[in-house]
Design a binder for these strands. Structure first.
Length: 522
DNA sequence: CGGATTTGACCCGCGC
DNA sequence: GCGCGGGTCAAATCCG
């Protein structure tokens, strides 16, 4: 009888070495067994087996009988010479591949074997004590693991909020700087008001003041038109109380003064307003191949319009984020005219609410891209950055990342359609399209944070030497320009937010289901 | 019945 | 001034 001592860990739980339950062999485990990642462990009992690498523990095509390993010693620390506790995992398999035949069923024993350094008599009570002690340690580890998970989750959420806050503050700072240089106190004061109110809008919707909510909601609805009315923003804000009453729109004709005021009160100089609109309206466009009508990105969207765009027989759909009341994020989805399998999704705005892990990769990446774009388009101490350098550095896994600063809105385009790299790091079979897409973006954004934490990037991702130059150049540029702090923060966020893609699979699946349900309706 | 989607109308900026 | 195109609204409709 072959007695196997292999250790198999679900790759999805590598980050969690202490699952909630240490279960004995179950049918479910046996089914999952085939999908598990196996540690290469050498055999210590078979003399004919020497440690020649990972293949020693894997079955060969000629011999399906599993090569076995006796013991994996997890807790070999024997400093005090007392108990030496080993966690051993038994895997007894008669056949490795023959699960379909009778008698070939896997017999997996994941029981704990405890060895003691001074076990002269193999005292059963000592073993029991060891089991109890180990179970206690496991419980403790499980509890700590859960705490750490919670902490990571909290940090991610806080980072999202801070990101929004930071962008607002930067905007505010620039407004103030412009105020100092151009000195039009009255108008500028109103601008500052707008900024402050925008920040109020960006708070999570949990703020409970009904008046505030009503105003926030109405402002959000009108904000969508800000890019059109940027020259007359102040006048429009003054008229909003007329256009919306108790949070309900009373019609465009309900306030005849409004349009008149817009035309007659160009309260803001063109250059400043356009700058502000640009800050708000930077867009991130993602091109990806998908047969689905919409790429699932972890957020919930409500369709609010559809238009035929010129030069494209495919209609363009307009979506609004519905994960929180008043979330300003919108997206446009349109198929490419030349290649109908390519879906172009254009994102605009920052979420004003915490995001589920599945949406973090996308949101962080788009935020990072937008921030990077805006930072690059702004004069810095070192002059103006080359935006395409930024794009390439930021998204090196994408074969094509371009920035278009042309009117009306600066847009970063991330082209995933030619990028096998962007999708090649996936676990096979098990990921939903949403996870694949989010993971691709996660990989990209993680790569963009290469200099921040190289150890976080797997070696497989580093096997892209052609990217080294652009990444290094971007690193130098970023290091020399403090204005990229926000972008770096976003990149860090993307790392944190996507650092546990596997552990977020439940959430992402939920969201994916929701999104698919939405898609199916379309 | 309530929420999501559809779709025609409307508004606005821009170019001619 | 007018027409065009992009973007949004909201009543009507659909759907679970």
């Amino acid at each position: 009888m072959d007695k196997g001592w292999g250790l198999a860990l679900d790759s999805g739980s590598v980050s969690n070495l202490f699952p909630d339950k240490i279960s004995s062999s179950t049918k479910q485990q046996q089914r999952r067994r085939r999908d598990m990642f196996q540690f290469p462990v050498c055999s210590f009992t078979r003399e004919e087996e020497d440690c020649r690498g990972t293949s020693s523990s894997l079955p060969s095509s000629e011999d399906n009988r599993r090569v076995v390993v006796d013991e994996v010693d997890f807790f070999s620390d024997d400093r005090d010479g007392k108990m030496k506790t080993s966690l051993t995992v038994n895997v007894k398999e008669e056949m490795f591949h023959g699960e379909s035949g009778p008698g070939s069923e896997l017999d997996v024993n994941t029981g704990l074997h405890l060895l003691t350094a001074n076990n002269t008599g193999s005292d059963q009570s000592t073993v029991d004590d060891g089991v109890a002690q180990l179970q206690g340690e496991l419980k403790h580890a499980i509890a700590e693991n859960q705490k750490l998970k919670d902490m990571v989750s909290n940090v991610s959420n806080n980072y999202s909020a801070l990101q929004v806050h930071l962008a607002t503050l930067i905007r505010h700072q620039r407004t103030r700087r412009a105020e100092r240089t151009q000195g039009k106190p009255e108008v500028k004061k109103q601008e500052a008001d707008i900024v402050a109110r925008q920040f109020l809008d960006q708070r999570p919707s949990a703020v409970a003041d009904p008046d505030e909510l009503s105003r926030s909601s109405s402002e959000d609805r009108t904000r969508s038109r800000e890019h059109m009315r940027s020259r007359n923003e102040i006048a429009q804000l003054d008229n909003e109380s007329c256009s919306f009453r108790d949070g309900k729109r009373i019609g465009r004709e309900g306030c005849p003064e409004s349009n008149k005021a817009r035309k007659l009160n160009p309260a803001k100089p063109v250059d400043q307003s356009s700058t502000e609109a640009t800050m708000r309206k930077a867009r991130v466009s993602v091109r990806a191949r998908s047969e689905a009508p919409m790429i699932s990105d972890g957020c919930q969207w409500r369709k609010y319009g559809q238009k035929m765009a010129k030069g494209n027989p495919c209609p363009r759909a307009y979506y609004r984020c519905t994960m929180a009341v008043g979330c300003p994020v919108r997206k446009q989805v349109q198929r490419c005219a030349e290649d109908r399998t390519i879906l172009t999704t254009t994102y605009e705005g920052n979420h004003n609410h915490p995001l589920p892990p599945a949406a973090m990769a996308m949101a962080s990446t788009t935020t990072a891209a937008a921030t990077m774009l805006l930072s690059g388009s702004m004069p810095s101490a070192d002059g103006i950055m080359n935006p395409n350098l930024l794009a390439r550095a930021m998204l090196p896994c994408s074969s094509m990342a371009t920035i278009s600063a042309s009117a009306p809105f600066p847009t970063v385009t991330l082209d995933l359609t030619h990028s096998p790299n962007a999708l090649q790091f996936q676990r096979p079979n098990t990921q939903s399209p949403q996870e694949l897409f989010g993971q691709a973006l996660y990989n990209q954004s993680k790569f963009s944070g290469l200099q921040l934490s190289q150890d976080m990037v797997s070696s497989s991702q580093l096997q892209q030497p052609q990217l080294a130059d652009t990444v290094s150049a971007a690193t130098a540029a970023i290091a020399n320009d403090p204005s990229f702090t926000a972008a770096l923060a976003a990149a860090i966020t993307s790392i944190i937010g996507g650092a546990h893609p596997n552990s977020s699979s439940n959430t992402s699946n939920d969201n994916n289901n929701n999104a698919n349900a939405t898609n199916n309706k379309q």
